[in-house]
């Protein structure tokens, strides 16, 4: 315990918080196993870290899309009661910028990540990983970013370069 406190103090100095945690920290965090962590870890990084097993193409994705997504997002991602997913290329500097997955989103991994977290809106957690890859592929396909038969998986998805990728800057650089 003594060693751990010393280690914690060192960390405190590194970050310079000035909070005297060592004295009054009750240290009640329960250590988790790797499996326990994996069960709550939804994070997917732009380099593909966190992407699960599985794969799918736009061909398969079209079926998933038409069944689960079309009602809100329209045919071929043209938009409906909710966000337009496709098109808008070249519109960002015009009178009506249209920020779609194809015209705006910087990372393809974000598409998979968001669908897995939050979609379909009324029944998140209902798509398999294969279905999620497939519908991700479909959304990229209707934006003319990948071919209809391109297989999206943990290796290929992070390699997809989004058309608007280079038009982002950071407003905050971590110290």
């Amino acid at each position: 315990m003594f060693m751990r406190k010393a280690l914690l103090s060192a960390t405190c100095v590194v970050f310079g918080t000035g909070i005297a945690f060592a004295a009054d920290n009750p240290e009640l965090g329960e250590e988790l196993t790797a499996a326990q962590v994996a069960a709550v870890d939804f994070t997917i990084m732009p380099d593909g870290d966190g992407l699960p097993e599985g794969s799918g193409t736009a061909v398969a994705g079209r079926e998933v899309y038409n069944q689960h997504c079309l009602a809100c997002h329209g045919e071929n991602g043209a938009g409906g009661v909710n966000d337009v997913l496709a098109g808008g290329h070249g519109s960002l500097t015009g009178p009506r910028p249209q920020k779609t997955v194809g015209s705006y989103w910087p990372y393809a991994t974000t598409v998979f990540d968001y669908i897995r977290r939050a979609m379909p809106f009324q029944t998140p957690d209902s798509l398999s990983n294969d279905e999620t890859y497939a519908v991700t592929a479909y959304v990229l396909f209707v934006n003319d970013i990948i071919a209809e038969d391109a297989d999206m998986n943990a290796d290929t998805l992070p390699q997809v370069k989004m058309p608007n990728r280079d038009n982002f800057v950071w407003g905050y650089m971590p110290k």
Partner: peptide, 26 residues
């Protein structure tokens, strides 16, 4: 690194007239 989630990229980012968007305007 940041995860580049849907909200911080496609929504809460700030597009200028030249088509450049700023992430992380905190």
């Amino acid at each position: 690194e940041p995860a580049m989630t849907k909200d911080e990229t496609s929504k809460y980012s700030d597009l200028n007239e030249e088509g450049i968007a700023q992430l992380f305007t905190f």
